[in-house]
């Protein structure tokens, strides 16, 4: 008599295996829901839409230019140095716009710093997939 003669149900209870797998998955899932779970990069990182990104970049440059130039104009009005700070502000604004674009493309958020110095920052940006609805790009 060999061990092969044991009824297969006892050796390899498929229901038990399945239960084990399910319990594991369920544990994983509940761990994800709670606040205490480790924060991981969201799955939204993928399918970045180029159009949405392109529009964002325009906004970023514009916003920085507005702030830079506007600040320059304010300082000019305060110091009476008419075109000087407007020009400086414009270039600083352009630089800020470039920085903004760099961070938007690199998915680095808005904090100061550069990728090499901040290896912990993962690609998490707003141009990712939209929440519940379609995933195509809507930026203009």
């Amino acid at each position: 008599m060999d061990s092969d003669d044991v009824p297969p149900g006892l050796r390899e209870l498929p229901g038990l295996r399945e239960l084990e797998e399910r319990v594991r998955l369920a544990k994983q899932r509940t761990a994800q829901v709670s606040w205490e779970a480790p924060a991981g990069p969201s799955a939204d990182d993928k399918n970045k839409s180029m159009l949405a990104l392109a529009f964002r970049l325009g906004t970023e440059i514009l916003a920085a230019l507005v702030i830079g130039t506007g600040g320059g104009v304010l300082i000019d009005g305060w110091l009476g140095s008419k075109p000087l700070f407007l020009l400086i502000g414009f270039f600083i604004g352009a630089g800020g716009g470039v920085v903004n674009v760099y961070r938007a493309v690199g998915g680095l958020g808005y904090a100061a710093g550069y990728p090499g110095a901040r290896p912990d920052i993962k690609c998490r940006e707003d141009s990712g997939a939209p929440p519940p609805a379609g995933s195509d790009d809507k930026g203009r």
Partner: peptide, 17 residues
Amino acid sequence: PIEIVSYLSRPISLSVR
């Protein structure tokens, strides 16, 4: 200054978008 401008441009880009 560039970083400051970049930081200050946050509310502008956020609201304009």
